[in-house]
């Protein structure tokens, strides 16, 4: 076991993938000498050269558009989008090309590419640097969307995403980049598309991913002090969703709160709530509740603590669920 940050977990995972497969190339803004604005690619250009760690012009449609071409030529590009809010210039290529190319070609073409996106708020940034846009992409058939919440997953999931023959959007919780945890680099990794029960409990289920997993674990810890036994699920994969894991938990607890930073309206929580009422109707003791960002443009950073879900808002929802 080694202790490392999430950023280092991704870095080590990228390194392992590049050592294993010479077709893996990294593309993005400032990812070379600088190692990326979050230093996630630190040292990789030095070790793998400028042909495999490519500093791109500052144009996101261009990054993803050329990565598509590289994939068509047989490479496995891993694209870094510098911040979540800068993905939109590339939206057309992701939705119209990356997602659809395989179906369009009747299975003749594969686009094994990964698009890495630091996601979410809580870092006191200016506008466009704190967004949670995963639902746009989870809504798009042809893409896979995953999100890591700890260093071990960061290390393994990035490698699994790169090995996937389908395109993957890989979200990294930017405010947790420097959180350390233990990584077992010799153990067999968990399946990429499976959710994980990260804390077992009997009274209610908290469903989260990315940065909110830590928040939910803290909430469960606090609730335990009040005699409430909360289960916490880290979804890990947002598309496809591992509803089996979520449903078994809900069938046990009967109560669910879905937590994410993204706005609740048509967010991941909406899909999960709809799916659970179909699958677990007779097991539900209370409506599925959602805690998320308000349905607003992301506010100035002085207000983000009030905008984002926190431990108290999660516990408030748990209380409402238990009181139902």
């Amino acid at each position: 076991m080694t202790s490392m940050t999430i950023a280092k977990g991704v870095n080590n995972g990228l390194r392992a993938a590049m050592e294993r497969d010479p077709k893996v190339v990294l593309m993005g803004e400032d990812i070379g000498k600088l190692g990326g604005v979050f230093r996630v690619t630190d040292g990789l250009q030095k070790d793998f050269g400028e042909d495999r760690v490519i500093d791109t012009p500052l144009a996101e449609a261009g990054i993803v558009g050329t990565a598509i071409g590289m994939a068509l030529r047989g490479y496995r590009p891993v694209v870094e989008i510098q911040f979540d809010g800068f993905i939109y210039p590339a939206f057309d290529h992701i939705v119209s090309q990356v997602a659809k190319m395989r179906a369009r070609s009747l299975g003749k073409v594969r686009l094994p590419m990964v698009i890495r996106i630091p996601v979410g708020g809580g870092i006191g940034a200016v506008e466009h640097h704190s967004e949670s846009n995963e639902a746009y992409f989870a809504h798009t058939a042809g893409l896979k969307v995953v999100c890591c919440s700890n260093a071990e997953d960061a290390y393994w999931m990035i490698q699994q995403a790169i090995e996937s023959d389908d395109p993957v959007l890989f979200y990294e919780p930017k405010r947790r980049y420097w959180d350390k945890s233990e990584v077992d680099v010799s153990a067999a990794p968990r399946e990429l598309l499976k959710a994980q029960v990260v804390r077992e409990g009997a009274d209610a289920t908290l469903v989260a991913y990315g940065p909110m997993v830590k928040t939910c674990l803290q909430a469960a810890e606090a609730a335990a002090g009040e005699g409430k036994d909360l289960e916490v699920i880290d979804l890990r994969s947002l598309s496809p969703l591992d509803l089996d894991t979520v449903a078994s938990s809900v069938e046990k607890t009967g109560r669910t709160v879905v937590v994410h930073e993204a706005s609740t309206f048509l967010g991941m929580g909406a899909e999960i709530a709809a799916a659970l009422q179909q699958r677990c109707f007779y097991h539900l003791e209370a409506p599925v509740l959602r805690v998320g960002g308000y349905n607003l443009p992301y506010p100035p950073s002085k207000l983000e603590e009030e905008f984002l879900p926190d431990l108290d808002r999660v516990l408030d929802a748990v209380d409402r669920s238990l009181a139902f």
Binding site: I54, A61, G62, G69, M70, L72, R73, Y75, D92
Partner: peptide, 22 residues
């Protein structure tokens, strides 16, 4: 394949050419 979104294929071609270089 035919690309219907206007101009998108120019980037795909450029990326493909970058692969050719490599």
């Amino acid at each position: 394949l035919y690309t219907i979104v206007i101009g998108a294929q120019t980037l795909h071609a450029t990326g493909y050419a970058m692969g050719v270089q490599r």
